[in-house]
C-alpha cells in the first residue's frame, strides 16, 4: 500500500471546518441540556403530580430512543406537520432532547443522594432555603454528579457524528466526504480518528483531574 499523507493536508480546511461544527454542536447541545436537565429534574422532584408525570414520560421516552431515529424523525417526518428545521438545528434539537433526559437523571441522583441530615444541619444554623442550596446541597450534588456528567459529555462529543446522516458538516461528515472524493480511505479515516482522539483525550484527562480535585469523601 502506498500512502499519500499530503491528502490530509489538502483537506485541512475541511477538517478544521468539521472540527468547529463538531465542537459547536456539542457545546450548544450541552448549553441547552444543562438547564433542560435541571428543569426536568425539578419537575420530577416536584410535589405537583402532573409535572412529575410529564417529566417521567419525557425521560423514559428519550432515554430509550436511538439518536439516529430521532434525527431522521425530526428531519423527515416533522416537515409533514409543517415544522422545517435546517440540518444543524435538527442535530441540536435531537441531541438536546436526549441529553436533557440523561442530565436530569444524573442531577436527580446527585441531589437525592444528599442526606436529609445535611439540610437539617444547615437549617438549624439559621440558613434560608436558598443559602442551604447554594452553600450545602448543590456543591455536594455537583461533585457527586461530576463523573456521570463527564461521561455524558464525552459520549455526546462522539455522538455528534451521528448527525452526519443528514449532512451536517461536522467532523465525520467532512471526513467521509473527503474520503469519497479522494478515494484515500486509509489516510482520511486515520486522520479522522487522530483528530477525534486529540479532541477527546485532553477532555478525558481534564475530567479525571476534576474528579480527583473535587471528590467528596464521607
Amino acid at each position: 500500500m502506498n500512502l499519500d499523507w499530503s491528502i490530509v493536508w489538502e483537506y485541512r480546511w475541511a477538517f478544521l471546518f468539521g472540527v468547529m461544527n463538531t465542537v459547536l454542536l456539542a457545546v450548544v447541545t450541552m448549553l441547552v441540556a444543562i438547564p433542560g436537565g435541571i428543569v426536568i429534574m425539578l419537575m420530577r422532584n416536584s410535589p405537583v403530580r402532573a409535572l412529575r408525570g410529564i417529566a417521567t414520560v419525557y425521560v423514559e421516552t428519550f432515554r430509550a430512543t436511538p439518536l439516529i431515529l430521532l434525527v431522521y424523525w425530526i428531519f423527515y417526518v416533522m416537515p409533514r406537520f409543517g415544522v422545517h428545521l435546517p440540518p444543524f438545528l435538527t442535530g441540536v434539537v435531537a441531541l438536546s432532547l436526549i441529553v436533557s433526559a440523561y442530565n436530569s437523571e444524573t442531577f436527580r441522583a446527585g441531589v437525592n443522594s444528599i442526606r436529609k441530615g445535611q439540610s437539617d444541619a444547615g437549617l438549624a444554623l439559621g440558613m434560608s432555603k436558598w443559602q442551604l442550596q447554594v452553600k450545602v446541597i448543590l456543591p455536594q450534588a455537583l461533585r457527586r454528579v461530576l463523573p456521570a456528567f463527564s461521561n455524558t459529555w464525552v459520549s455526546l462529543f462522539k455522538d455528534t457524528s451521528l448527525v452526519s446522516v443528514i449532512a451536517v458538516s461536522e467532523l465525520s461528515y467532512v471526513s467521509l466526504q473527503a474520503r469519497a472524493e479522494s478515494f484515500r480511505i486509509f489516510e482520511i479515516l486515520t486522520a479522522m480518528a487522530a483528530i477525534y482522539w486529540c479532541l477527546g483525550y485532553p477532555q478525558a484527562k481534564l475530567v479525571d483531574w476534576l474528579n480527583r480535585k473535587y471528590e467528596v469523601k464521607e
Partner: peptide
C-alpha cells in the same frame, strides 16, 4: 439563637 448537634454529626463534607 439555638444550636443543634446531631447523632450523625452532619458536618459539611466539602
Amino acid at each position: 439563637r439555638m444550636g443543634m448537634v446531631f447523632q450523625s454529626f452532619e458536618l459539611f463534607p466539602h
